[in-house]
Design a protein around this nucleic acid. Structure first.
Lengths: 232, 232
DNA sequence: AACAAGCGTGACGGATTCGTCACGGTGACA
DNA sequence: TGTCACCGTGACGAATCCGTCACGCTTGTT
């Protein structure tokens, strides 16, 4: 399905991941040496890079910065692996432009889910500046929402929240996912904050607020097509 | 160069515009009847639509709404023509998702400039979610600016302002242009507001603020490459 | 050199926005 | 049917953001 570059020096971990990804239909390329990353990326054109920060020799952060600094590689999504507790403050300070972030130890399944999420996001989003969903039209460029052709003003957070929901409509976004996508990694917003913003969004959408559906115990979902309502 | 659809019932005006655009290397197609707009757009695939709001029969606003409601035509830039004073409140209320806006009477030259500006914007912007300029990387999707790899937080206006400047770097953006692009048409911000925001931007960029250059008497400009500084 | 227009800058008040909390309602499950 | 986790909602304070103004410097022109 997709080509994935894995930068990881511990060969057993790399192999485990690779095996699992292959089984899921992805093509995994493993690299243990940091110095080979740049050439490998330029040659192989992976769709995603999984980067372990703990590498012998070259620092993982350095690699990451170089990837982001080069025009040819800046757009490639990167998922960062790090040991628990290690360099977390450094990362927080960097506010890294990584697309996701995973702390060891983790299960291959977990990594696979993250990769899927990133792929989903990237493939749908990149190269589309306007999202059309039924009566809704989201204009990223001007940060505006059009409902039946009339413009609605949204705040920054409301816009990001709705964008995230609409990018992948009809899929359930868990609370954790939304918090991560909208607020970022190092966010310590309280539990009810998300609910409050969902509520404000629904308010602004008026009757169309029904398109934002609560999936109890899981999260929220944007439904472009509403199911036929039952008569009272 | 580009195919442009002109919807205008006064044939002399349409011809004048058409002539001028042809001379500038564009292909102009004229339509006088509102009902023919949709089929013409679907057949001809114009890059830009110039739409007169004052049409016999079908209302220009209706046409505009239909264009925006249809997925196949929603992304096409529209420049709206209107007589002075006419329906302005209606338009303000709509906050129309038009790409530009011209009040009659206007010179063909003026329209041409607007068209050029829109084309420039659209061609560069659409389909690119990240802008790379030297040490800067603008991430529209997450509304973040990366300077040498580290993230900077910008407010909504700051982000739009910088985006506008960076989209077309090394070209001078007049104050009027910036006010229009960042604040929108119906904005009544005072003269110094723009200056203040430019200042705040420069502050946040730190030393890199020098990339935002003042063109005295004209406007501002983003220079990706700074000229070699003179020794004191 | 003197003047005027254009621009940079600091300060300030109002408006918006955001996160948090408490409370009540609702659905799921035993 | 009762209990509990989960969710909706209103209110509130703090923080941020934004537009405006006044003042002074700079630039270029006469």
């Amino acid at each position: 399905m997709s080509k994935i570059l894995i930068v990881e020096d511990e060969s057993d971990i790399a192999e485990l991941i690779s095996l699992h990804l292959n089984r899921e239909g992805h093509e995994a390329i493993c690299i243990g040496n940091g110095l080979q990353v740049m050439p490998a990326v330029l040659e192989q054109h992976p769709e995603i890079i999984v980067l372990d920060l703990m590498l012998p020799g070259l620092d993982g952060l350095q690699i990451f910065k170089r990837l982001r600094a080069d025009t040819r590689t800046a757009a490639i999504p990167v998922i960062i692996l790090t040991a628990k507790g290690q360099v977390t403050d450094k990362i927080a300070g960097l506010e890294l432009g990584a697309d996701d972030y995973l702390t060891k130890p983790f299960s291959p399944r977990e990594l696979y889910l993250r990769i899927s999420a990133v792929l989903r996001r990237v493939k749908k989003v990149t190269h589309v500046s306007e999202i059309q969903r039924g009566r809704f039209m989201l204009d990223r460029k001007n940060m505006k929402l059009f409902l039946d052709g009339t413009a609605l003003d949204l705040t920054t957070i409301e816009f990001k929240l709705l964008t995230t929901l609409m990018e992948n409509d009809s899929t359930v976004h868990s609370r954790a996912d939304l918090l991560r996508d909208v607020w970022g990694y190092n966010s310590d917003v309280a539990t009810r904050t998300l609910d409050t913003h969902i509520k404000r969004l629904r308010e602004k959408l008026g009757a169309a607020g029904e398109h934002i559906v609560t999936i109890r115990g899981t999260g929220f979902q944007f439904q472009t097509e509403l199911p036929a309502s039952q008569p009272a």
